[in-house]
Amino acid sequence: MVQRRRKDANGKFLTGEETRVWRIARGLTQPELAGWLGLSPQAISKMERRGVSRVMALALAAIDRGLPPMKPGPEDYKAWEEREKATKGETDEVE
């Protein structure tokens, strides 16, 4: 059975200290981590004081696994458009 981590009293998944330790252990500066996450270094500083949510912890885990920042490319938009057309066709048939 997978052990689930509980949120702390403030609803944060990782404390600020855990977030800072994670960054330093990987040899990242605040500006470097900010660049990976698309945030400002000030936002990273704030995370290291207040902690992070589960969503941000997932982003840190993705960085940990070497996944690059993702921005949809042309193939993603093409797949999305095809899915939208297919969904629209299903809706038209029901009416």
Rank of each mutant, 00 (worst) to 15 (best):
R83T: 11
G16M: 06
D76R: 14
A86F: 04
D76E: 06
M47Q: 12
W22K: 01
E18Y: 05
G35C: 07
G73R: 13
D64P: 05
A57G: 07
K12E: 08
R49Y: 06
T15P: 00
A86C: 04
Y77T: 06
T15A: 02
W80P: 01
M70C: 10
K88I: 05
E17R: 03
R5A: 04
I63S: 01
R83K: 11
W36Q: 08
K12Q: 13
R65M: 14
E95H: 08
Q3E: 07
G27W: 01
E84M: 06
K12A: 09
E18D: 05
G89R: 14
M56E: 01
Q3R: 06
R6A: 09
V2A: 12
L60A: 05
A86V: 00
Q30T: 03
T29V: 09
M47E: 01
E90K: 15
W22F: 09
S45E: 07
S45P: 07
L37H: 09
P41R: 08
V21D: 14
V2E: 05
V55P: 04
L39D: 03
P41N: 01
P72Y: 02
A34I: 06
E17F: 12
E82N: 07
W80M: 09
V52Q: 03
Q3D: 07
G35F: 10
E82L: 13
V21K: 10
S40I: 02
M47I: 03
P74S: 07
L60M: 13
A59N: 14
W22P: 00
A86Y: 11
T87I: 07
D92P: 04
R6H: 10
S40T: 12
T29W: 11
A43P: 12
R83F: 05
K71C: 05
R23G: 07
A86M: 04
P74Q: 10
W80G: 04
G11T: 05
D92M: 13
W22R: 02
I44R: 02
E75D: 13
T15F: 02
E32Y: 00
E82W: 02
V55S: 12
E32A: 10
G73C: 11
G35I: 04
E93Q: 15
N10A: 15
V2S: 02
E81W: 15
T19K: 06
A9P: 01
R49M: 04
E48S: 10
V21W: 04
G73A: 12
L39Y: 09
A25E: 15
T29Q: 03
T87G: 13
T29S: 15
R5D: 00
E93F: 15
R6N: 09
L33P: 00
K7I: 03
G35Y: 11
R5I: 01
L14E: 00
E17M: 08
A86K: 08
G27T: 00
P69H: 10
D76N: 11
M56P: 04
A61M: 11
M70R: 13
V94W: 10
A9L: 07
R65V: 08
R5V: 05
N10Q: 12
A43Q: 13
G89N: 13
E84N: 06
V2Y: 08
G66R: 12
K85H: 06
E75P: 00
D76V: 05
D92N: 06
A62I: 13
K46W: 10
E32P: 00
E95W: 15
Q3K: 04
L60N: 02
E17W: 11
G51E: 03
P69F: 05
G51Y: 00
V52P: 00
P68D: 05
D64G: 14
V52D: 01
L33I: 01
K88E: 10
L58G: 12
